[in-house]
Amino acid sequence: MSAPTGAPTHAATSGRIEARFAALAAEGRAAFIPFIMAADPTVAATRDILKGLPAAGADIIELGVIFSDPMADGPAIQAAGLRAKAGGATLRQTLEIVREFRTGDDTTPIILMGYYNPFYIYGVEAFLADAKEAGVDGLIIVDLPPEEDSELCLPALDAGMHFVRLATPTTDDQRLPAVLEHTSGFIYYVSIAGITGTASATQDAIQAAVTRLKSHTDLPVAVGFGIRTPEQAAAVAQVADAAVVGSAIVQLIADNLDENGQPTAGLVDTVLDFARALADGVHGARRRAAE
């Protein structure tokens, strides 16, 4: 089953992730991947932010699926989940948000990121069919390591849905091939042993990790966890194929709510301005490094 360039999928994928990384490689730049939680704090806010992100420089978008018990997330993303949950967010509604996004954008890849239980309860087969139809390109499921591949990873690959695996500082060389075996689209390197939105890795550690991953796979390597500023994003973009920013964006949403938890008038623009600054950092990184 294993292939050096990622796991084979059986049905055709949407092709959006492959096309995006091919275009980026041709341009010689890295990808900026923002993360927001679906329906945080409202469906309308998510819809507006999503709509503006590609023009702000997002190359791929990670959309969080709420779960009541997000074991790998720090306070910022936990709070985002609680806000979304208070508004009645569900996985089904998240698919609806993607479906609406796709009416205006057929090229920006969307990856759903979450924990397994909501997908399991939805029903794996039904979910994959609905997600494909809605225009989802890939999945990142935090609590499905290779040991549980038969649950969702293999069915997703069969259905033409990318399954992006997380590699971490604790994934040693002996374990890495198993982690990479059924990964598709790209590999997401979690740069710290820890939860989201807390510590940041050093540039040297990130560089060493990316080099190590690249010696095992031809897939693009994205780096996330602990990237909070345009400067940090730019530094990561010098060594990796993509930089993921989540908690810092989500925190900005939290900072722009009124006393009732509703979005203030400037919320969407503030988030998109920050995304633009992060994207500029990522996109100019190698050019600036070369100058």
Partner: peptide
């Protein structure tokens, strides 16, 4: 064993 990769090892 439904845990994050960081914990698997």
């Amino acid at each position: 064993r439904y845990v994050a990769e960081t914990l698997m090892p």
